[in-house]
Design a binder for these strands. Structure first.
Lengths: 152, 152
DNA sequence: TTTGAAAACCAACCGAA
DNA sequence: TTCGGTTGGTTTTCAAA
């Protein structure tokens, strides 16, 4: 768990730059390197830190666009949801999948290389997921902001 | 730019674990440490790599829920969009903001600590953004998948 | 690709609150 | 007892050969 503002400072810095050296991190939060490292390890052990990832520029990586897709299932039993979600996990084109409150639809975000690629993802992946009755895509014209940082 | 499958392998590994040492990364892609480091540096220079971030567990960090919010503006001129987006960038509670095709609405994702916090974000932030005419929130019951990794 | 100096890491230990 | 600081051997980095 987060103990104090020192921990919060460490988390804010690491969220912005996960490859900072422990020595510099320690300096920025006014701790000795060893004390700082002990806190980071404790935060990792506690399960608060899920991991460290590299952020790519989507356009430069060949994914100029993403789309949001609303997906409705024909049934909402535990087994149906599990079957659907299990398949979702297998497709790297599906970046995110959220179960929404209300109509119990899924909101999915996919990355595609061009319009033909989006066609393929729609036809070969999304509509083939188990139990799907409705698939409605909305293209993203522009991503204004996309952070993985939480306001700790 | 990405040169070959070696580069792609490096990117896949770093997307999954940004804190791997250069020595281990080199071993896993069958390169010498110095050759591997040279490639990573080149990928960084090219702008493909946007940065390295730490992933927190949202629940453990005190953010049990996120919500998607559709926001419509009363005007769609360049100036209106810029004013809106400029304010969006200032609020850390707003994790993402996408301009959608079609009705030219924004889809925004916010993190909140509890229902009172969501109320506050709705009343004090979202409805106060410049030019907003309609704000419609949908809670996320469960996030099935959330990756920042692109399928390079 | 190899190498070696400099930097960073991190475990063991010490001291203060 | 817990938390921060110090030390020193080990690992990693990275530029020169």
């Amino acid at each position: 768990m987060i103990q104090d503002d020192r921990d919060r400072a460490i988390l804010r810095i690491l969220q912005a730059n996960a490859r900072i050296t422990n020595a510099e991190l320690a300096e920025r939060v006014h701790l000795s390197p060893s004390a700082c490292l002990r806190r980071v390890r404790a935060l990792e052990e506690s399960g608060l830190i899920r991991g460290y990832t590299m952020q790519l520029d989507p356009k430069a990586a060949g994914f100029p666009g993403t789309a949001f897709v609303m997906i409705a299932l024909d049934q909402q039993g535990r087994a149906s949801l599990d079957a659907f979600e299990g398949q979702v996990m297998k497709h790297p084109e599906i970046l995110e999948c959220h179960l929404l409150a209300g109509a119990h639809d899924y909101l999915v975000r996919v990355a595609y290389r061009d319009s033909a690629d989006l066609e393929r993802i729609h036809a070969e992946i999304l509509t083939q997921l188990p139990g799907v009755t409705r698939v409605q895509s909305t293209l993203t014209l522009r991503t204004v902001k996309r952070t993985t940082a939480l306001p700790v």
